[in-house]
Amino acid sequence: MTGPLTLDMVAGKMKEFGNSELVRKNRIRITTTPDKVHDTIKTAQAMLGCDRLITISAVDNTRTLELIYHLTGPHRMVLSIAIELTRDQPAIPTTSDILPPAAIYERQIHDLFGITFTGNTNLNRIMLNEDWPANEFPLRKDWKPGPDTFYGGIKVERT
């Protein structure tokens, strides 16, 4: 699809996955659930021509963690697929099997937010040092450095 995407077009093709809204004149947001992420992306690829992953964003909005997959195509519209996850043990299926570039973003998000991408076999550290304490995710709003803990070889001391 090379013509422009409209909110009505997207809402019609994606209605089974969740609500669609026009965020800006060149951005449409679809809110869906973790169990529908694969089908939502596959439908966006097949029916809307969204064949490129721009990035995956992660947001800590205090009560939940949110993932936003930003896709585009020849139409130059950005389709943002948003999914909310619970804070305690956040997990979602990997999308690297249908969007290979997603693997690197999943590693970064896992490292910094602690979101698990089930099916991704390479969630090794990529952003933080290897000696970073386990289960500490510095981009979560509730994270605080532990007393007398080493972060990247630097000891945090509390006075």
Rank of each mutant, 00 (worst) to 15 (best):
I30K: 08
R24S: 13
P133E: 01
D131Y: 00
P74K: 08
K25R: 10
R125C: 03
M77C: 08
T43Q: 03
A134K: 15
V37F: 12
D51Y: 04
Q89H: 13
V37W: 01
N61V: 09
P101D: 03
R140Y: 01
M47Q: 15
I126T: 15
R158M: 06
H38N: 11
G18F: 01
N129A: 13
T149A: 05
T55P: 10
G152D: 05
G146E: 13
L48W: 07
R27V: 13
A134F: 05
I28N: 12
M77Q: 12
A102L: 04
L67N: 12
M77W: 07
T2L: 06
D8P: 13
K25D: 10
D148C: 02
T149V: 14
I56E: 14
T43K: 04
K25S: 09
E16Q: 13
S80T: 10
T86S: 10
G153M: 06
P145G: 08
G73F: 00
D8Y: 02
T31Q: 11
L22V: 04
L65V: 07
Q89T: 14
F17S: 09
I83Y: 07
T159M: 00
I104K: 03
T32H: 05
W143E: 04
T94K: 11
M127R: 10
F137L: 05
G12S: 12
Y151G: 11
D148I: 00
E21D: 11
H38Q: 06
W143T: 04
A58I: 02
T64S: 13
I83H: 13
N61Q: 08
H110T: 08
A102W: 02
E16A: 07
D60L: 00
I28H: 07
G49N: 05
L48T: 08
I115C: 08
D131G: 09
M9S: 15
H110L: 05
A91C: 05
K15E: 11
